[in-house]
Write a protein that binds this DNA or RNA. Structure first.
Lengths: 372, 372
DNA sequence: TGCGCAAATGTAAACCTTTACATAAGTCGT
DNA sequence: ACGACTTATGTAAAGGTTTACATTTGCGCA
């Protein structure tokens, strides 16, 4: 579209010089910078190309509906004026924006960034853009983004939050097509794309069992986070299969943070019942556990084995490097966006859950149980 | 604004039932859910409140210009309909969106998330919203966001990228008011808010000197990243003051990544010239260095001291915990947004640079140089 | 009573698109 | 040569606001 030389680069034409609709004057070229004060509108292009604005619009969106010669003239005019469609006006008219809003409570979540890349790639392949909203779990901010959605500034919603946007219920608003990613939305029928938590956790537990551990604690139990519940279930399934009685299982509550991992260690020491291996609900917890153990002077992995879930970037750089279950992040991102976009054109009726099978990443934090 | 009981909660009124402008029928209350199929417009509110749309708009934005009784009626109508202004139409009309776009090449940057919070708080205190654009250093994406800006979907730009958005030059477009945050834009006059790199780095180097080190390597030198250049300068200043000859200084190039830190260690071993302390251009590099040293079997901090810059979350959880210079992240975010918003109303002429003084965070990675 | 002024509200234009519909100009077959 | 299509283009409405300007109303004061 961009012309090659300086020839087309400049025009004598200046916007808003005509009070009436008028046949454009013959073009004369001068060496004046292209950029105008205010961005060019479709009308400027039309005037320059000596056509109506309707034709310009068509030349852009339905090129086959306009004669070749006209099309060329329009394209030149576009190049000259540097015209780009005013997305605001376009969206207002069309009732949609070709934008997807991703709502995340914490941009800093180490999982978020690579999932986002998957999301974005898929979106842009379908002509959609992605905007990120940072809620910080703040109801006010949630409300703000609801307004954003409400005025068609985004056509679809991707929830990374594990819950519907705060304020949603009170405002009695309908959400646009929505998909939950990474973390299922507890107690709702919002379609979900994420890792197969149960299977992944089971793999982890089985690996510990296969390494000879019989006394395996589960750190980070939760009653409210669906994903964590499922990981717990994977743990139980594996231990069931190994015929380890429920009474033998050490389960410690936690919120999935580093701090709660460290706290869990303290609790176990208070109770004075120590496992040989710690299976953690996620890597953050595992890091906390490793820190807690190191702080008490233990040598890892000799004294205890630890396994995580997620494979956050940091996992590699722990000492010992953390053995964990890897989130198939870009696959999750891709599929979630695909599901959402599909949903945009033909709303799906039944609940849908896409679970992706994760792999175990073996590093250095699990060994055979020693004689401590 | 929301009424208390169920009384105002419902209305018999249904939108778009009137072909003509007509005096609204007396309200009758029924128990029907409030939410309508399509979101309420200002016209619905006007009809319900028996006023013109102009009055509704005024009641919202200039309450003092409308009679108290009218205002109340309008507010009730708003509560009933659940009306929220269509931001799209508003922006189109007003030529601005009250949104700020933050462009970041990598959302995963551990510094980004807390700076963002500072940005957001300041923005919302002034009635602005924040949207995040993820460029991945991809020119196409940069272009996409330029279009976004071009159609007034954002009034200001905050660059976290260290460079202008790709595609800017070719599109000969003017950027909206812009401020660079965290990383100055190399070779431009864009105002910048960030840490005082020189002073911070100098503090770090002086701390190493005070700990008794005389052989201090600088890891992660760069010719293109302004912030890194400044850190290098701080290092030089400190060593100058300590009368350590430039010839004595070990300086290794790097890109500020974990990998490049590890690589730097390898290079030094190849050269067979080892310092007693490593001063790293940032924490990522420091982590790489510590990993590289650990991989070679050294015991930190006994064998070598390492100091970083940034204080990323991970720094606490290294073994030993990393001594580093803390980025005043939320202050940076706050000030950057403040500068941008100020800039929005009255464009500033002279270049402006706001440098915030950082503190040293002493942890465990620096000791007195031993007799290795 | 009537005039001037202030306060409250309404009317209509403008922001920039897209698109249904109307119009104009060819083309083709008979 | 003419009606039936097809193709290319133009006209104007609609989308939901904000706001300059016009109008109406009410009040105080001479």
């Amino acid at each position: 579209m961009r012309t090659s030389g300086g020839f087309w680069g400049t025009a004598s034409f200046r916007r808003r010089d005509f009070a009436f609709r008028v046949r454009p004057i013959p073009l004369q070229w001068q060496s004046v910078p292209v950029s105008t004060q205010t961005p060019a509108t479709i009308e400027d292009v039309a005037r320059l190309a000596e056509v109506s604005i309707a034709t310009v619009s068509r030349a852009i969106h339905n090129p086959e509906k306009v004669a070749k010669s006209t099309r060329q003239r329009v394209n030149q005019a576009i190049a000259i004026t540097g015209y780009t469609t005013n997305a605001m006006a376009r969206s207002l008219r069309m009732g949609r924006s070709n934008m997807i809003l991703v709502l995340a409570p914490d941009i800093g979540d180490p999982n978020f960034s690579s999932i986002l890349i998957g999301l974005e790639n898929e979106a842009r392949a379908h002509g959609y853009g992605v905007l990120i909203g940072h809620t910080q779990n703040d109801p006010e901010r949630g409300l703000e983004y609801l307004k954003f959605l409400n005025s068609n500034q985004a056509d679809g919603l991707l929830l990374f939050t594990g819950h519907e946007p705060f304020g949603h219920q009170e405002m009695t608003q309908r959400l646009p097509p929505t998909v939950a990613v990474f973390e299922p939305v507890f107690g709702s029928r919002i379609p979900y794309v994420g890792v197969d938590d149960t299977a992944g956790a089971r793999k982890a537990a089985e690996y510990l069992l296969a390494s000879g551990h019989r006394s395996i604690a589960f750190i980070g139990d939760s009653k409210t986070r669906l994903g964590h519940l499922r990981r717990r279930k994977g743990y139980d399934l594996a231990l069931d299969a190994a015929r380890i009685a429920p009474a033998q299982r050490l389960v410690v509550d936690g919120e999935g943070t580093i701090e709660s991992g460290r706290l869990a260690v303290e609790q176990l020491f208070m109770r004075d019942t120590l496992p040989t291996a710690f299976m953690c609900v996620n890597d953050a917890t595992a890091i906390g556990v490793m820190n807690g153990l190191a702080a008490r002077g233990y040598d890892l992995p000799r004294d205890f084995s630890v396994i995580g879930f997620d494979d956050v970037p940091q996992a590699t750089y722990m000492t010992p490097a953390l053995t964990t279950v890897r989130q198939p992040r870009s696959a999750i991102g891709r599929q979630a966006m695909a599901l959402l976009l599909e949903n945009l054109t033909q709303p799906l009726t039944e609940q849908r859950e896409v679970l992706i099978m994760p792999d175990l990443v073996v590093r250095g934090s699990v060994t055979m149980p020693g004689k401590r």
